[in-house]
Computed example of a mutant assay.
Amino acid sequence: MAKSSRPLQVLCVVGARPNFMKIAPIMRAINHERLGLSGKLLHTGQHYDAAMKASFFDQLNIPEPDVDLGVGSGSHAVQTAEIMKRFEPVLDELQPDAILVVGDVNSTIACALVAVKKAVPVIHVEAGLRSGDRTMPEEINRVLTDQISDLLFTTEKSAAANLEKEGIATDKIHFVGNVMIDTLRFNLTDAVPSKATIDTLLECGQQSDFSRGYGLVTLHRPANVDDPVVLERLLRVLAEVGTEVPLVFPVHPRTRQRIVDSGLDSLLAGTAFYMVPPLGYLEMLGMMKDARLVLTDSGGIQEETTALGVPCVTLRENTERPITVEQGTNTIAGTDPEKIRASVREILDNGGKSGRIPELWDGRAAERIAEIIRCKLEEQHQ
């Protein structure tokens, strides 16, 4: 096949909040003039509102999407099907040389399925991560996307072992590092100081003594917030932790609704466990950087705390990011109050795990990804 005179085109797909931090450095790297690539951005609209756009797209300097599918919320089946229906005509019109998907949300598997059925190469960034828990929708999305991808970029070496075990050819797999950490390093000097965020969010008369530090909490996994028994168990132990160190809890709207619907908001009244609105990326980065500890069920935050050297307690029974436990600052406590208390006590008394920065988490993963994409696509077009 003769080499085309036009730049090789990569259609990059985002759909939900976890994708935005990953796509920012990838778009910068792909569109660097020296590579001769052309990156377009498609937003499925799986998660979208004006505040989110201001706090993620604008803060991270993500370009305006070339295409916005405007799908919105729905059940997993409805959302996945709607993305596929709306994505197909766009793919037919743009005819990219490849599509690039990140992470494990519904947009990832939906767009990958449409592309592979049309013989458009699929590139998966953050491939091979496995929790071993197939009750998690994200785990299903990860496994299936990897099976139909042509080029798989991994963040840690254990991911390649997972992929090879599942029959993925080794020449498709490339260990490049972590694009989430690219974004963290790129924006660290612009992070909003935690004191400014706390002063803005909390009325002075209600504040605890933040001079002894604070903890940061995030909860959003269905297994934790959809079951009122589990949610109550977690809120009770977190309110107890709040007697030792103030906790700031930027609450996902869905989580807040579950707390209210379950009548559990009264548990937090008069405690040093503060529910606040969701934070922008730079505000969240500043809060994470300065925290004494972070308690979370987010996979991305496990990685970010490891990169920042901040002790993390994961409120899940497993993790698809084992390197954060083996090399980083992460401890798996699950939802057992005794394990959570013990993990917090270790951090408050002894500082917790010091950890180290994993290999290739150096802020240049996106550059490596773009260079490999260029080489592979040029090979295909020769």
Rank of each mutant, 00 (worst) to 15 (best):
V344Q: 06
L308T: 00
K339W: 02
I301A: 08
I347C: 14
N318V: 14
I332R: 03
G299Y: 01
A307H: 03
L308Q: 06
K339P: 04
T329D: 02
P337A: 11
I323N: 11
V294D: 07
M288G: 11
Q302H: 03
Q302D: 12
G309I: 00
I347S: 08
R292T: 15
L293W: 09
A333L: 00
E346F: 15
S298F: 14
C312S: 11
V310G: 00
I323V: 15
P311W: 04
R292Q: 09
T331Q: 14
A333N: 02
C312I: 13
A333E: 03
V325P: 04
G309R: 04
L315V: 00
V344L: 10
R316K: 01
A307Q: 09
I340A: 05
E304P: 13
G299M: 02
R345C: 06
A333G: 02
E283T: 11
S298A: 15
R345W: 14
T324A: 03
L293T: 15
G300P: 01
I323L: 15
E303Q: 14
P337Y: 06
I301R: 10
D297P: 01
A333R: 07
P337T: 12
E303V: 03
D297W: 07
L308I: 07
G334V: 11
G309V: 06
K339G: 02
A342Q: 14
L295S: 08
R316G: 02
D290T: 13
P311N: 09
C312L: 08
K289N: 13
D349I: 12
E283P: 15
G299C: 02
V294S: 09
D336F: 07
I332D: 05
L315D: 01
T306G: 13
P322R: 04
E320T: 13
G334N: 01
N318R: 12
V313C: 08
I347D: 02
L308R: 00
R316P: 09
V310A: 01
V344T: 10
R345V: 08
E338T: 11
M284I: 12
V294R: 05
T306D: 08
G334C: 03
V313E: 06
T314L: 11
P311M: 07
G286T: 03
G309Y: 08
Q302K: 05
